[in-house]
Amino acid sequence: MSVLISKEKKVKNKEFHPNILCFCCNWCSYAGADLAGVSRFQYPSTIRIVRVMCSGRVDPSFILEAFKDGIDGVIVTGCHIGDCHYLKGNEFARDRFERFQKTLKLFNLDKRFRLEWVSASEGKRFAEIITEFTNQIKELGPLRLI
Protein backbone atom coordinates (compact mmCIF):
# COMPACT_ATOMS: atom_id res chain seq x y z
CA MET A 1 0.00 0.00 0.00
CA SER A 2 3.01 2.25 0.01
CA VAL A 3 1.91 3.58 -3.33
CA LEU A 4 -0.85 5.38 -1.52
CA ILE A 5 1.34 7.71 0.46
CA SER A 6 0.55 11.20 -0.57
CA LYS A 7 3.38 13.60 -0.93
CA GLU A 8 2.49 16.87 0.69
CA LYS A 9 3.19 19.26 -2.07
CA LYS A 10 1.45 22.55 -1.85
CA VAL A 11 0.62 23.72 -5.30
CA LYS A 12 -0.04 27.40 -5.25
CA ASN A 13 -1.90 27.10 -8.46
CA LYS A 14 -5.25 28.78 -8.28
CA GLU A 15 -6.35 26.99 -11.39
CA PHE A 16 -6.18 23.63 -9.65
CA HIS A 17 -9.61 22.07 -10.03
CA PRO A 18 -9.76 19.06 -7.73
CA ASN A 19 -11.64 15.88 -8.52
CA ILE A 20 -13.69 14.83 -5.55
CA LEU A 21 -15.74 11.69 -5.11
CA CYS A 22 -18.86 12.18 -3.01
CA PHE A 23 -20.98 9.35 -1.64
CA CYS A 24 -24.56 10.29 -0.80
CA CYS A 25 -27.16 8.16 0.93
CA ASN A 26 -30.43 7.92 -0.92
CA TRP A 27 -32.61 9.21 1.91
CA CYS A 28 -30.95 12.25 3.43
CA SER A 29 -27.81 13.65 1.86
CA TYR A 30 -28.78 12.86 -1.74
CA ALA A 31 -32.05 14.64 -1.02
CA GLY A 32 -30.03 17.46 0.56
CA ALA A 33 -28.03 17.73 -2.65
CA ASP A 34 -31.31 17.81 -4.56
CA LEU A 35 -32.53 20.63 -2.36
CA ALA A 36 -29.31 22.53 -2.97
CA GLY A 37 -30.22 22.19 -6.63
CA VAL A 38 -33.85 23.21 -6.26
CA SER A 39 -32.77 26.17 -4.13
CA ARG A 40 -29.99 27.05 -6.61
CA PHE A 41 -27.31 27.09 -3.93
CA GLN A 42 -24.11 27.33 -5.96
CA TYR A 43 -21.05 25.29 -5.05
CA PRO A 44 -17.85 24.33 -6.86
CA SER A 45 -18.22 21.81 -9.67
CA THR A 46 -15.62 19.58 -8.11
CA ILE A 47 -17.71 16.70 -6.82
CA ARG A 48 -19.06 13.66 -8.59
CA ILE A 49 -21.82 12.02 -6.61
CA VAL A 50 -22.23 8.28 -6.27
CA ARG A 51 -25.60 7.40 -4.79
CA VAL A 52 -25.82 4.49 -2.37
CA MET A 53 -28.80 3.42 -0.30
CA CYS A 54 -27.04 4.07 3.00
CA SER A 55 -23.75 5.52 4.22
CA GLY A 56 -23.35 2.12 5.89
CA ARG A 57 -22.86 0.71 2.38
CA VAL A 58 -19.69 2.70 1.74
CA ASP A 59 -16.77 0.33 2.02
CA PRO A 60 -13.46 1.89 3.05
CA SER A 61 -11.96 0.04 0.10
CA PHE A 62 -13.89 2.38 -2.21
CA ILE A 63 -12.01 5.30 -0.74
CA LEU A 64 -8.67 3.58 -1.22
CA GLU A 65 -9.69 2.70 -4.75
CA ALA A 66 -10.43 6.36 -5.43
CA PHE A 67 -7.12 7.57 -4.07
CA LYS A 68 -5.32 4.86 -6.00
CA ASP A 69 -6.93 6.21 -9.16
CA GLY A 70 -5.69 9.68 -8.32
CA ILE A 71 -8.91 11.25 -7.10
CA ASP A 72 -7.96 14.21 -4.93
CA GLY A 73 -10.54 13.90 -2.18
CA VAL A 74 -13.41 11.73 -1.00
CA ILE A 75 -16.39 12.79 1.06
CA VAL A 76 -19.00 10.40 2.45
CA THR A 77 -22.32 11.90 3.47
CA GLY A 78 -25.26 10.31 5.27
CA CYS A 79 -28.22 10.98 7.51
CA HIS A 80 -27.64 12.62 10.86
CA ILE A 81 -27.14 10.17 13.70
CA GLY A 82 -30.56 9.01 14.81
CA ASP A 83 -32.17 9.73 11.43
CA CYS A 84 -30.92 6.68 9.52
CA HIS A 85 -33.53 5.15 7.26
CA TYR A 86 -32.06 1.78 8.16
CA LEU A 87 -31.92 2.56 11.89
CA LYS A 88 -28.18 2.35 12.47
CA GLY A 89 -26.36 2.25 9.12
CA ASN A 90 -24.85 5.69 9.66
CA GLU A 91 -23.63 4.67 13.10
CA PHE A 92 -21.74 1.79 11.55
CA ALA A 93 -20.38 4.18 8.94
CA ARG A 94 -19.26 6.55 11.67
CA ASP A 95 -17.50 3.82 13.62
CA ARG A 96 -15.80 2.41 10.54
CA PHE A 97 -14.60 5.73 9.25
CA GLU A 98 -13.36 6.86 12.64
CA ARG A 99 -11.06 3.85 12.56
CA PHE A 100 -10.35 4.24 8.87
CA GLN A 101 -9.33 7.85 9.36
CA LYS A 102 -6.44 6.62 11.51
CA THR A 103 -5.30 4.32 8.71
CA LEU A 104 -5.52 7.18 6.25
CA LYS A 105 -3.38 9.29 8.55
CA LEU A 106 -0.57 6.79 8.15
CA PHE A 107 -0.67 7.48 4.43
CA ASN A 108 -1.04 11.20 4.96
CA LEU A 109 -4.44 11.02 3.30
CA ASP A 110 -6.63 11.82 6.29
CA LYS A 111 -7.18 15.43 5.30
CA ARG A 112 -8.42 14.31 1.91
CA PHE A 113 -11.25 12.31 3.39
CA ARG A 114 -14.29 13.46 5.27
CA LEU A 115 -17.52 12.07 6.71
CA GLU A 116 -20.44 14.49 7.05
CA TRP A 117 -24.13 14.32 7.98
CA VAL A 118 -26.57 16.21 5.79
CA SER A 119 -30.33 16.02 6.16
CA ALA A 120 -32.81 16.28 3.32
CA SER A 121 -33.60 19.85 4.37
CA GLU A 122 -30.02 21.02 4.51
CA GLY A 123 -29.44 22.05 0.92
CA LYS A 124 -27.49 25.05 2.04
CA ARG A 125 -25.37 22.97 4.37
CA PHE A 126 -24.62 20.56 1.54
CA ALA A 127 -23.41 23.41 -0.65
CA GLU A 128 -21.36 24.86 2.19
CA ILE A 129 -19.71 21.56 3.02
CA ILE A 130 -18.77 20.96 -0.60
CA THR A 131 -17.39 24.49 -0.94
CA GLU A 132 -15.39 24.16 2.22
CA PHE A 133 -14.06 20.67 1.44
CA THR A 134 -13.10 21.82 -2.04
CA ASN A 135 -11.10 24.67 -0.53
CA GLN A 136 -9.44 22.25 1.82
CA ILE A 137 -8.42 19.98 -1.06
CA LYS A 138 -7.26 22.99 -3.06
CA GLU A 139 -5.02 23.92 -0.14
CA LEU A 140 -3.59 20.41 -0.13
CA GLY A 141 -2.99 20.48 -3.84
CA PRO A 142 -3.34 17.63 -6.33
CA LEU A 143 -2.89 14.12 -5.00
CA ARG A 144 0.56 12.86 -5.80
CA LEU A 145 1.30 9.26 -5.05
CA ILE A 146 4.81 7.88 -4.67
Partner: peptide, 23 residues
Amino acid sequence: CGTCGVQCPNSTIIIKHFGFEQI
Protein backbone atom coordinates in the same frame (compact mmCIF):
# COMPACT_ATOMS: atom_id res chain seq x y z
CA CYS B 1 -28.98 -0.99 3.11
CA GLY B 2 -25.71 -2.77 2.36
CA THR B 3 -24.13 -2.46 5.78
CA CYS B 4 -23.48 -6.20 6.00
CA GLY B 5 -21.54 -6.10 2.75
CA VAL B 6 -19.03 -3.74 4.31
CA GLN B 7 -18.88 -5.65 7.57
CA CYS B 8 -18.11 -8.97 5.89
CA PRO B 9 -14.37 -9.61 6.39
CA ASN B 10 -14.28 -11.78 3.29
CA SER B 11 -16.20 -9.36 1.04
CA THR B 12 -18.47 -12.20 0.16
CA ILE B 13 -21.80 -10.47 0.47
CA ILE B 14 -23.10 -9.00 -2.76
CA ILE B 15 -25.14 -5.84 -2.39
CA LYS B 16 -27.25 -6.02 -5.47
CA HIS B 17 -27.24 -2.97 -7.70
CA PHE B 18 -24.67 -1.33 -5.41
CA GLY B 19 -22.05 -4.07 -5.55
CA PHE B 20 -18.30 -3.80 -5.64
CA GLU B 21 -18.18 -4.14 -9.43
CA GLN B 22 -20.75 -1.43 -9.94
CA ILE B 23 -19.39 1.13 -7.50
